[in-house]
Design a protein around this nucleic acid. Structure first.
Lengths: 226, 226
DNA sequence: GTCGTCAAATGACTGGAAGTCAGTTTCCCC
DNA sequence: GGGGAAACTGACTTCCAGTCATTTGACGAC
């Protein structure tokens, strides 16, 4: 790779990332390429060598930035999850928000609409991603997750009067469970997709957004009706 | 392995399983050993070679009974799931059953109490187990799952008057989602267990049975309160 | 400008597990 | 008791995550 002397590259990352800034850019590049591959296939089908190739780097280099494949994908999940939390936070902050159960359910479900990568990764968090990762990385992730859940949980409690103290985060735990579980059922392996195509299988075909909205609405109604 | 001529073995499986009956016994043996290993460790840590060794067979033999590791564990899940369905069915058939929401929630949650293997496997169904399995095996599994859900779903509808037509199976879908999601959160990787031990992490520590009972009760109350 | 240094990058190599298959052995039936 | 079908075996292949000795480019010192 030879730099072109005629054109002044605009903040192109050099061949060697020495500054923290460039390292960060390289890290991002790897996450983006990993995500692109993951969206096109599945976790098992994404090879570290492919991530490297797409990024224009050698395989060994990927392992300088992420010690294991699981660490790479946990970092990706981290990224997607907390940027989603931030977006949800913004949406919930709208001044004209009605704060009814159905509204909240719809808002949450819709905010997860294009977030397939996020919810798919979330469904693998404990069974796959946390299996081969340093305690430190796991801690940082859980710590941030806790922060976010306490923050949003407190917001829920302050706005929805039927929630008792401590129930905000709890609702989020149930939400997390529903998201994880419904994504599993909705986002089905190619093999199973074929199987589910036949008409009588309809009850097992899940529309993620619709089902999440329904379940969450019901759950909130159940809390309100005590 | 030499058979002892002095003792007449009681229905011992011969070295070669030629009768269907003996093949079935061998299949069971493999499933049991796989389960034992899985309960002691995790999916990734169970090696096909270990399953073979524990069963007193060669590695190649395991692959005569199950074409892939995923197929072996999907068969195990199949076993556990449908025997659980049968037990649940029995429990629900008790003549003195009160058929209230909280009762149903408790009954279901309690029936899943010692079933950690079942729920752990369920949480991996789509993300891992269906990834490397024949269409045929996937079809048989889904087909049986559908049967069971329609059966139990119909039972729920007939006993709980607030359920509208078609909502029985739907409740089961949400139940499945909750089970899957809560098991993920409750049954945590060793790394994460250490992380979650600190006191301020309490909101992220989940008691599976308690949380499932709570969520399911709320969900049913929400349906009743329409 | 160029030279020395050192961290970044490389890619051939290792280890380990799933899955294969040609050869071996058992046991059923004639 | 012997012939043959098929169950079983385990060395071998393949594939991929992860390693590490070596190479190379960026940058500061002069």
């Amino acid at each position: 790779m030879v730099s072109n002397p005629g054109v002044k590259a605009e903040r192109a990352t050099p061949q060697r990332a020495r500054k923290d800034e460039d390292k960060e850019a390289r890290r991002r590049l790897l996450l983006d390429e990993a995500r692109a591959l993951y969206e096109a296939t599945s976790y098992a089908e994404v090879k570290m060598a492919d991530v490297a190739e797409r990024s224009g780097l050698a395989k060994g280099t990927v392992f300088l930035y992420f010690p294991t494949k699981e660490a790479l994908f946990l970092a990706l999940l981290d990224d997607l999850l907390f940027s989603w939390f931030a977006r949800l936070d913004t949406r919930l902050g709208q001044p004209d928000a009605p704060w009814t159960g159905p509204w909240l359910a719809r808002t949450v479900a819709e905010s997860l609409e294009g977030e397939t990568s996020l919810t798919r990764l979330l469904a693998m968090l404990q069974t796959v991603l946390e299996q081969n990762v340093t305690v430190e990385q796991a801690r940082r992730f859980k710590e941030r997750l806790l922060q976010a859940m306490l923050h949003i949980g407190a917001l829920l409690e302050s706005r929805m009067s039927f929630l008792r103290p401590g129930e905000g985060p709890r609702v989020l735990v149930h939400l997390h469970a529903l998201v994880t579980g419904l994504r599993q059922m909705a986002d089905v392996a190619p093999v199973a997709r074929e199987v589910l195509a036949s008409p009588h299988m309809a009850p097992l075909r899940i529309d993620f957004t619709a089902e999440l909205t329904a379940a969450l609405t019901t759950l909130l109604r159940g809390l309100e009706a005590r």
